[in-house]
Protein backbone atom coordinates (compact mmCIF):
# COMPACT_ATOMS: atom_id res chain seq x y z
CA UNK A 1 0.00 0.00 0.00
CA UNK A 2 1.79 3.06 -1.24
CA UNK A 3 -0.03 5.66 0.83
CA UNK A 4 0.38 3.75 4.06
CA UNK A 5 4.10 4.09 4.46
CA UNK A 6 5.79 7.47 4.56
CA UNK A 7 9.20 6.00 3.87
CA UNK A 8 8.12 4.90 0.41
CA UNK A 9 8.98 7.52 -2.18
CA UNK A 10 6.73 6.81 -5.10
CA UNK A 11 6.39 8.26 -8.53
CA UNK A 12 2.91 6.85 -9.04
CA UNK A 13 -0.12 7.00 -6.77
CA UNK A 14 -3.85 6.92 -7.06
CA UNK A 15 -5.62 10.00 -5.77
CA UNK A 16 -6.90 7.95 -2.85
CA UNK A 17 -3.35 6.93 -1.96
CA UNK A 18 -2.13 10.51 -2.28
CA UNK A 19 -4.75 11.79 0.17
CA UNK A 20 -3.98 8.91 2.53
CA UNK A 21 -0.26 9.70 2.27
CA UNK A 22 -0.73 13.40 3.11
CA UNK A 23 -2.92 12.60 6.12
CA UNK A 24 -0.64 9.82 7.36
CA UNK A 25 2.46 12.01 7.26
CA UNK A 26 0.59 14.84 9.02
CA UNK A 27 -0.50 12.43 11.77
CA UNK A 28 3.11 11.33 12.20
CA UNK A 29 4.16 14.96 12.52
CA UNK A 30 1.30 16.11 14.78
CA UNK A 31 0.55 13.51 17.45
CA UNK A 32 -2.79 15.14 18.31
CA UNK A 33 -4.27 15.32 14.79
CA UNK A 34 -7.55 13.45 15.09
CA UNK A 35 -9.86 11.95 12.47
CA UNK A 36 -13.63 11.88 13.03
CA UNK A 37 -16.29 10.25 10.92
CA UNK A 38 -18.36 7.20 10.25
CA UNK A 39 -16.86 3.92 8.98
CA UNK A 40 -13.37 5.41 9.08
CA UNK A 41 -11.87 2.97 11.60
CA UNK A 42 -10.98 -0.61 10.74
CA UNK A 43 -13.32 -0.32 7.76
CA UNK A 44 -10.97 2.31 6.27
CA UNK A 45 -13.63 4.73 5.06
CA UNK A 46 -16.59 4.09 2.79
CA UNK A 47 -14.32 4.39 -0.25
CA UNK A 48 -11.15 3.11 1.42
CA UNK A 49 -9.27 6.41 1.57
CA UNK A 50 -8.22 5.81 5.21
CA UNK A 51 -7.02 2.27 4.57
CA UNK A 52 -4.25 1.43 7.05
CA UNK A 53 -4.56 4.57 9.20
CA UNK A 54 -6.56 2.83 11.93
CA UNK A 55 -3.84 0.19 12.28
CA UNK A 56 -1.11 2.82 12.33
CA UNK A 57 -2.69 5.34 14.69
CA UNK A 58 -5.33 3.47 16.65
CA UNK A 59 -8.92 4.10 17.73
CA UNK A 60 -8.07 7.16 19.84
CA UNK A 61 -7.02 9.10 16.75
CA UNK A 62 -9.09 7.50 14.02
CA UNK A 63 -12.46 7.76 15.72
CA UNK A 64 -15.51 5.98 14.41
CA UNK A 65 -18.53 7.87 15.64
CA UNK A 66 -22.29 7.64 15.44
CA UNK A 67 -24.15 8.48 12.29
CA UNK A 68 -24.82 12.16 12.85
CA UNK A 69 -23.21 14.63 10.49
CA UNK A 70 -24.13 17.69 12.52
CA UNK A 71 -22.71 16.27 15.74
CA UNK A 72 -19.62 15.06 13.93
CA UNK A 73 -18.81 18.46 12.46
CA UNK A 74 -19.78 20.20 15.72
CA UNK A 75 -17.45 18.00 17.75
CA UNK A 76 -14.80 18.57 15.09
CA UNK A 77 -15.17 22.32 15.51
CA UNK A 78 -14.91 22.01 19.29
CA UNK A 79 -11.77 19.93 18.96
CA UNK A 80 -10.31 22.38 16.45
CA UNK A 81 -11.02 25.55 18.46
CA UNK A 82 -9.19 23.85 21.32
CA UNK A 83 -6.04 23.90 19.20
CA UNK A 84 -6.21 20.24 18.20
CA UNK A 85 -6.25 19.85 14.42
CA UNK A 86 -9.10 17.67 13.20
CA UNK A 87 -10.28 16.08 9.97
CA UNK A 88 -13.98 15.26 9.86
CA UNK A 89 -15.49 13.24 7.04
CA UNK A 90 -18.91 13.54 5.43
CA UNK A 91 -19.38 10.19 3.70
CA UNK A 92 -21.20 11.53 0.63
CA UNK A 93 -21.24 15.21 -0.38
CA UNK A 94 -25.04 15.01 -0.39
CA UNK A 95 -25.10 14.46 3.38
CA UNK A 96 -23.46 17.83 4.03
CA UNK A 97 -26.89 19.38 4.30
CA UNK A 98 -27.45 17.58 7.58
CA UNK A 99 -24.41 19.37 9.01
CA UNK A 100 -24.93 22.69 7.30
CA UNK A 101 -25.49 24.89 10.36
CA UNK A 102 -22.27 23.71 11.90
CA UNK A 103 -20.36 24.49 8.72
CA UNK A 104 -21.77 27.83 7.64
CA UNK A 105 -22.90 29.37 10.93
CA UNK A 106 -20.23 27.98 13.22
CA UNK A 107 -17.00 26.90 11.49
CA UNK A 108 -17.04 29.67 8.91
CA UNK A 109 -17.87 32.49 11.32
CA UNK A 110 -16.18 31.77 14.64
CA UNK A 111 -12.88 33.41 13.74
CA UNK A 112 -14.62 36.52 12.50
CA UNK A 113 -17.13 37.06 15.26
CA UNK A 114 -14.63 36.42 18.01
CA UNK A 115 -12.36 39.08 16.55
CA UNK A 116 -9.77 36.42 15.80
CA UNK A 117 -9.78 34.91 19.30
CA UNK A 118 -10.82 31.46 18.03
CA UNK A 119 -9.37 29.67 15.03
CA UNK A 120 -10.86 26.55 13.48
CA UNK A 121 -8.19 24.25 12.00
CA UNK A 122 -10.81 21.80 10.77
CA UNK A 123 -10.67 20.06 7.40
CA UNK A 124 -13.94 18.54 6.23
CA UNK A 125 -13.36 15.82 3.62
CA UNK A 126 -16.21 14.77 1.40
CA UNK A 127 -16.53 12.96 -1.93
CA UNK A 128 -18.62 13.76 -4.97
CA UNK A 129 -20.23 10.46 -5.92
CA UNK A 130 -21.53 11.49 -9.33
CA UNK A 131 -22.31 9.24 -12.32
CA UNK A 132 -22.57 6.07 -10.27
CA UNK A 133 -26.30 5.55 -10.52
CA UNK A 134 -26.93 6.23 -6.84
CA UNK A 135 -29.78 8.60 -7.50
CA UNK A 136 -30.80 12.08 -6.43
CA UNK A 137 -29.58 11.96 -2.79
CA UNK A 138 -26.13 10.44 -3.41
CA UNK A 139 -24.86 12.14 -6.55
CA UNK A 140 -24.58 15.89 -6.11
CA UNK A 141 -21.75 18.40 -6.41
CA UNK A 142 -22.54 21.12 -3.91
CA UNK A 143 -19.27 23.08 -3.81
CA UNK A 144 -20.90 26.33 -4.92
CA UNK A 145 -22.95 26.50 -1.70
CA UNK A 146 -19.73 27.11 0.19
CA UNK A 147 -18.47 29.84 -2.15
CA UNK A 148 -21.47 31.82 -0.95
CA UNK A 149 -20.33 31.77 2.69
CA UNK A 150 -17.29 33.85 3.64
CA UNK A 151 -14.91 32.11 6.03
CA UNK A 152 -14.43 28.64 4.59
CA UNK A 153 -11.91 27.60 1.95
CA UNK A 154 -12.96 25.16 -0.76
CA UNK A 155 -10.46 22.76 -2.31
CA UNK A 156 -11.40 20.52 -5.25
CA UNK A 157 -8.49 18.59 -6.79
CA UNK A 158 -8.67 16.54 -9.97
CA UNK A 159 -5.49 14.48 -9.84
CA UNK A 160 -3.25 12.66 -7.38
CA UNK A 161 -0.30 15.05 -7.13
CA UNK A 162 -2.61 18.04 -6.63
CA UNK A 163 -4.53 16.15 -3.97
CA UNK A 164 -1.30 15.45 -2.09
CA UNK A 165 0.00 18.99 -2.31
CA UNK A 166 -3.35 20.59 -1.48
CA UNK A 167 -4.02 18.27 1.47
CA UNK A 168 -0.59 19.15 2.83
CA UNK A 169 -1.53 22.81 2.67
CA UNK A 170 -4.93 22.13 4.22
CA UNK A 171 -3.27 20.41 7.16
CA UNK A 172 -1.14 23.44 7.99
CA UNK A 173 -3.89 26.02 7.43
CA UNK A 174 -5.55 27.43 10.58
CA UNK A 175 -8.92 27.85 8.86
CA UNK A 176 -11.92 25.62 8.14
CA UNK A 177 -11.53 23.89 4.81
CA UNK A 178 -13.94 21.88 2.70
CA UNK A 179 -11.87 19.33 0.78
CA UNK A 180 -14.00 18.02 -2.08
CA UNK A 181 -12.88 14.70 -3.50
CA UNK A 182 -14.38 12.62 -6.29
CA UNK A 183 -15.08 8.92 -6.09
CA UNK A 184 -14.50 8.40 -9.80
CA UNK A 185 -11.02 9.89 -9.44
CA UNK A 186 -9.93 7.98 -6.32
CA UNK A 187 -8.53 5.11 -8.37
CA UNK A 188 -7.02 7.28 -11.06
CA UNK A 189 -3.25 6.89 -11.00
CA UNK A 190 -0.79 9.65 -11.72
CA UNK A 191 2.78 10.74 -11.17
CA UNK A 192 3.46 12.08 -7.68
CA UNK A 193 6.62 13.62 -6.30
CA UNK A 194 6.36 13.11 -2.56
CA UNK A 195 9.21 15.56 -2.01
CA UNK A 196 7.37 18.39 -3.79
CA UNK A 197 6.35 21.48 -1.87
CA UNK A 198 2.76 21.86 -0.68
CA UNK A 199 0.52 23.56 -3.27
CA UNK A 200 -0.66 26.95 -2.07
CA UNK A 201 -4.39 27.65 -2.20
CA UNK A 202 -5.49 30.08 -4.91
CA UNK A 203 -3.07 28.79 -7.50
CA UNK A 204 -4.73 27.36 -10.59
CA UNK A 205 -3.03 24.78 -12.82
CA UNK A 206 -2.94 25.29 -16.56
CA UNK A 207 -3.61 21.70 -17.53
CA UNK A 208 -3.09 22.31 -21.22
CA UNK A 209 -2.14 25.44 -23.08
CA UNK A 210 -4.19 26.78 -25.95
CA UNK A 211 -5.00 29.97 -27.84
CA UNK A 212 -8.59 29.83 -29.13
CA UNK A 213 -10.77 29.17 -26.09
CA UNK A 214 -10.37 28.70 -22.33
CA UNK A 215 -12.16 25.92 -20.49
CA UNK A 216 -12.12 26.25 -16.70
CA UNK A 217 -13.09 22.86 -15.30
CA UNK A 218 -13.54 21.34 -11.85
CA UNK A 219 -12.84 17.86 -10.53
CA UNK A 220 -13.90 15.10 -12.94
CA UNK A 221 -14.74 17.58 -15.68
CA UNK A 222 -11.05 18.52 -15.96
CA UNK A 223 -10.43 15.18 -17.63
CA UNK A 224 -13.49 15.52 -19.87
CA UNK A 225 -12.23 18.96 -20.91
CA UNK A 226 -8.87 17.49 -21.88
CA UNK A 227 -10.59 14.85 -24.01
CA UNK A 228 -12.60 17.62 -25.65
CA UNK A 229 -9.45 19.67 -26.23
CA UNK A 230 -7.80 16.69 -27.93
CA UNK A 231 -10.73 16.30 -30.30
CA UNK A 232 -10.87 19.99 -31.07
CA UNK A 233 -7.11 20.05 -31.67
CA UNK A 234 -7.63 17.54 -34.48
CA UNK A 235 -9.80 20.18 -36.12
CA UNK A 236 -7.24 22.92 -35.60
CA UNK A 237 -8.97 24.52 -32.56
CA UNK A 238 -6.58 25.18 -29.70
CA UNK A 239 -8.18 24.96 -26.23
CA UNK A 240 -6.58 26.01 -22.95
CA UNK A 241 -7.78 23.94 -19.99
CA UNK A 242 -7.46 25.38 -16.47
CA UNK A 243 -8.11 23.59 -13.19
CA UNK A 244 -8.55 26.19 -10.41
CA UNK A 245 -7.89 23.47 -7.78
CA UNK A 246 -9.36 25.76 -5.10
CA UNK A 247 -12.49 27.83 -5.71
CA UNK A 248 -12.07 29.71 -2.42
CA UNK A 249 -9.64 31.35 -2.83
CA UNK A 250 -9.98 31.53 -6.60
CA UNK A 251 -7.01 32.33 -8.83
CA UNK A 252 -8.61 34.92 -11.11
CA UNK A 253 -5.20 36.09 -12.37
CA UNK A 254 -4.50 32.84 -14.19
CA UNK A 255 -8.01 32.76 -15.64
CA UNK A 256 -7.93 36.39 -16.81
CA UNK A 257 -4.44 35.93 -18.27
CA UNK A 258 -5.79 33.02 -20.27
CA UNK A 259 -8.82 35.02 -21.38
CA UNK A 260 -6.57 37.81 -22.57
CA UNK A 261 -5.13 35.25 -24.97
CA UNK A 262 -8.23 33.29 -26.00
CA UNK A 263 -11.06 35.83 -25.50
CA UNK A 264 -13.49 32.93 -24.99
CA UNK A 265 -14.55 31.12 -21.83
CA UNK A 266 -16.42 27.94 -21.03
CA UNK A 267 -16.86 26.64 -17.47
CA UNK A 268 -17.39 22.93 -16.87
CA UNK A 269 -18.54 21.16 -13.70
CA UNK A 270 -20.69 18.28 -12.54
CA UNK A 271 -22.79 20.60 -10.35
CA UNK A 272 -26.14 21.89 -11.53
CA UNK A 273 -26.02 24.87 -13.82
CA UNK A 274 -28.11 27.33 -11.80
CA UNK A 275 -26.20 29.04 -9.05
CA UNK A 276 -23.13 26.94 -9.71
CA UNK A 277 -19.44 27.78 -9.82
CA UNK A 278 -19.89 28.61 -13.51
CA UNK A 279 -22.38 31.34 -12.71
CA UNK A 280 -19.98 32.92 -10.24
CA UNK A 281 -17.01 32.68 -12.57
CA UNK A 282 -18.99 34.14 -15.47
CA UNK A 283 -20.00 37.06 -13.30
CA UNK A 284 -16.45 37.68 -12.12
CA UNK A 285 -15.13 37.56 -15.67
CA UNK A 286 -17.70 40.14 -16.70
CA UNK A 287 -16.75 42.33 -13.77
CA UNK A 288 -13.02 41.98 -14.16
CA UNK A 289 -12.57 41.10 -17.83
CA UNK A 290 -15.58 42.29 -19.82
CA UNK A 291 -13.38 43.68 -22.58
CA UNK A 292 -11.64 40.32 -22.88
CA UNK A 293 -14.80 38.43 -23.84
CA UNK A 294 -15.54 37.97 -27.54
CA UNK A 295 -18.49 35.65 -26.90
CA UNK A 296 -20.98 34.94 -24.12
CA UNK A 297 -19.56 32.66 -21.43
CA UNK A 298 -20.66 29.03 -21.88
CA UNK A 299 -21.67 26.92 -18.89
CA UNK A 300 -21.24 23.16 -19.27
CA UNK A 301 -22.99 21.70 -16.24
CA UNK A 302 -25.49 19.17 -14.98
CA UNK A 303 -29.05 19.93 -16.05
CA UNK A 304 -31.28 21.56 -13.47
CA UNK A 305 -33.10 18.37 -12.55
CA UNK A 306 -32.54 15.99 -9.63
CA UNK A 307 -30.02 13.31 -10.61
CA UNK A 308 -31.96 10.19 -11.62
CA UNK A 309 -30.89 6.61 -11.01
CA UNK A 310 -29.88 4.38 -13.88
CA UNK A 311 -28.61 4.97 -17.38
CA UNK A 312 -30.63 8.15 -18.00
CA UNK A 313 -28.27 9.99 -15.66
CA UNK A 314 -25.92 10.27 -18.64
CA UNK A 315 -28.41 12.74 -20.08
CA UNK A 316 -28.08 14.94 -17.02
CA UNK A 317 -24.32 15.18 -16.61
CA UNK A 318 -21.97 17.12 -18.85
CA UNK A 319 -19.23 15.31 -20.75
CA UNK A 320 -16.53 15.89 -23.36
CA UNK A 321 -19.13 16.10 -26.13
CA UNK A 322 -20.86 18.98 -24.40
CA UNK A 323 -17.54 20.76 -23.87
CA UNK A 324 -16.85 20.38 -27.62
CA UNK A 325 -20.27 21.80 -28.41
CA UNK A 326 -19.73 24.72 -26.06
CA UNK A 327 -16.38 25.57 -27.64
CA UNK A 328 -17.95 25.31 -31.11
CA UNK A 329 -20.52 27.89 -30.03
CA UNK A 330 -17.80 30.09 -28.57
CA UNK A 331 -15.96 29.92 -31.90
CA UNK A 332 -19.10 30.77 -33.83
CA UNK A 333 -19.07 27.40 -35.56
CA UNK A 334 -22.57 26.53 -34.39
CA UNK A 335 -25.32 28.35 -32.64
Amino acid sequence: MVGGDNSTVSTSMTMSEAINHAIGEAMERDPQLTLLGQDIGAYGGTFGVYRGLFDRFGPQRVIDGPLCESGTIGFGIGIAVSGVRCIAEIEFFDFVGVAMDQIFNQAAKLHYFTGGKLTVPLTIRTPIVSRMGMGPQHSQSLEAWFMHIPGIKVVIPSQADDALGLMRTALTDPNPILFVENVRLYGRRGPVDVDADPIPFGSARVVREGTDATVVALSGMVHEAVVAADRLAERGISVEVIDPRTIVPLDMDTILTSLAKTMRLAVAHDAHKSGGFGAELAARCMEQGFDLLDAPVERVAALDVPIPCGPVLDEVYPNADRVVEAVERLMGLTR
Binding site: G71, I73, G74, F75, I77, G78, I79, V81, Q102, Q106
Partner: peptide, 8 residues
Amino acid sequence: PMAGGVAK
Protein backbone atom coordinates in the same frame (compact mmCIF):
# COMPACT_ATOMS: atom_id res chain seq x y z
CA PRO B 1 -21.85 19.73 19.88
CA MET B 2 -18.98 22.22 19.88
CA ALA B 3 -18.89 21.99 23.67
CA GLY B 4 -18.75 18.21 23.31
CA GLY B 5 -15.79 18.64 20.99
CA VAL B 6 -14.02 20.99 23.40
CA ALA B 7 -14.47 18.31 26.07
CA LYS B 8 -13.21 15.68 23.63
